[in-house]
């Protein structure tokens, strides 16, 4: 099934919510890819907080395609509590701003990550620009 490109989505659009799991294998691969040497020093088998954002983003990209050439301009993140390896979470997101100028779209997307009991785990807001029309 094809999914819409982010540049096509209007302000107020709710992206399909997705569950995701911070599986041990995925966390291991993430930590290796970013070479995080600090999280292992924190007691509690926690995942790097940016891993939550990265995997939530990956889940949400199931519902909205990032056009080729998209550029990440800014990011806000709030980590409500530490998350342990193996936790199952839920990501939801919405387009909160959209503008277009000279063939480029500027979009703001807010994202919430919650635990199985509905409690907040992470909030975020990303700003990105991309070619209008999903140019490749």
């Amino acid at each position: 099934m094809s999914v819409p490109a982010l540049d096509e989505l209007p302000k107020g659009y709710e992206l399909p919510a997705f569950p995701f799991e911070l599986s041990p294998d995925w966390v291991r691969e993430y930590v290796a890819s970013v070479e995080d040497e600090a999280i292992g020093e924190v007691d509690g088998d926690f995942v790097p907080p940016m891993a939550i954002a990265a995997l939530a983003l990956r889940a949400l990209l199931e519902g909205a395609r990032l056009p080729d050439g998209a550029i990440h301009l800014g990011q806000e993140l709030e980590f409500v509590r530490p998350v342990r390896v193996g936790e199952k979470l839920h990501a939801s997101a919405r387009v909160v701003s959209r503008g277009e100028r000279q063939g480029w779209v500027l979009s703001g997307v807010e994202m919430d990550v919650t635990a199985a009991d509905g409690s907040a785990v992470m909030h975020g807001r990303a700003t990105a620009t991309m070619p209008a029309g999903g140019a490749t």
Partner: peptide, 20 residues
């Protein structure tokens, strides 16, 4: 984020905020 974990320990994943 790794730098902030290294400097703040559990306080970073347990209440940190970032705006860049």
């Amino acid at each position: 984020s790794e730098m902030l974990t290294a400097n703040f320990g559990r306080a970073w994943p347990g209440g940190g905020r970032l705006k860049i």
